[in-house]
Design a protein around this nucleic acid. Sequence first.
DNA 1: CGTAAACAGGACCGACGCGGTCCGGTATTG
DNA 2: CAATACCGGACCGCGTCGGTCCTGTTTACG
Lengths: 152, 152
Amino acid sequence: MLRMTKQADYGIVLMTHMADDARRRFTAPELSAETQIPLPMVSKILKMLSREGLLGSHRGSKGGYSLARAPERITVAAMIAALEGPIAFTECVEGAPGSCSQEAVCRLRSNWQRINVALKQALEGITLAELTHPLPPLVRLGGGARTFEQRI
Amino acid sequence: MLRMTKQADYGIVLMTHMADDARRRFTAPELSAETQIPLPMVSKILKMLSREGLLGSHRGSKGGYSLARAPERITVAAMIAALEGPIAFTECVEGAPGSCSQEAVCRLRSNWQRINVALKQALEGITLAELTHPLPPLVRLGGGARTFEQRI
DNA sequence: CGTAAACAGGACCGACGCGGTCCGGTATTG
DNA sequence: CAATACCGGACCGCGTCGGTCCTGTTTACG
């Protein structure tokens, strides 16, 4: 568990595919054929990404979608947030203060927030450009527990 | 989104409460009263944690649950895993090789695995003992993006 | 100017999992 | 033997996810 939705997964597959030819304009049918993801799904996801400003869209015949920014400037965090809302480990992290009845006495909240921030920053540290490399030489995630043993 | 289930959330609240008095034996009704979590829910969660070996249980009158190990030796990762299964960002990370049709051509898998490992290690780096401190002096998560910019 | 291609918006739907409850059984204490 | 408490599992409503479809509207091209 603790996994992201299939929509976000698909979305990242689509974006990665588009990043291979960053200036090209892709139609939904093309992307469906090239990624094997069913067309209606592709269409739905591209619409969301476009609405969220990660893709530019051009209507009409010869229309299609293209990356709104260079792949280096699109983070994994942004894609996930666009497709499944803000990244929040627990309800109390996401909600406005007061949404949790235990808030006053809950010692966990600050911990969750830290974990959440760390996860978010990890995902913000990975760009679409880096995803295009099968075994990226620089993935901004430490490989060992040591990496996380830092004082705040 | 990208959040853990309420069961895991509750479970960690319960465990944290128990860690306050690590050698005490708690009954489900007691814990329900002390945490405001409905009894049937508490009962269900404690059963799971016990089955997974994080709690010891004693039946009969004067029975109850107690921590199976010292709070320093119980990680957040273990609790989450016990309550909502293995930590897996995407299906392809969790499933046996072959479960994803795109596997051969998918360049993303290795990236997901790294992200997953990093997340897992972050959660493994936090112990129940640390959760009992409202603002723990040492939470094993970097506070800045720099922390993650390390070569593997 | 008409037609085809393609995006836009949103309704719609089935299925599954989550959150939550309840019950019958068994072990332990006194 | 009675009370307490864990154990296993059935059960259920409801929301969300995954997925489809339909009705516009915009644009290119002949």
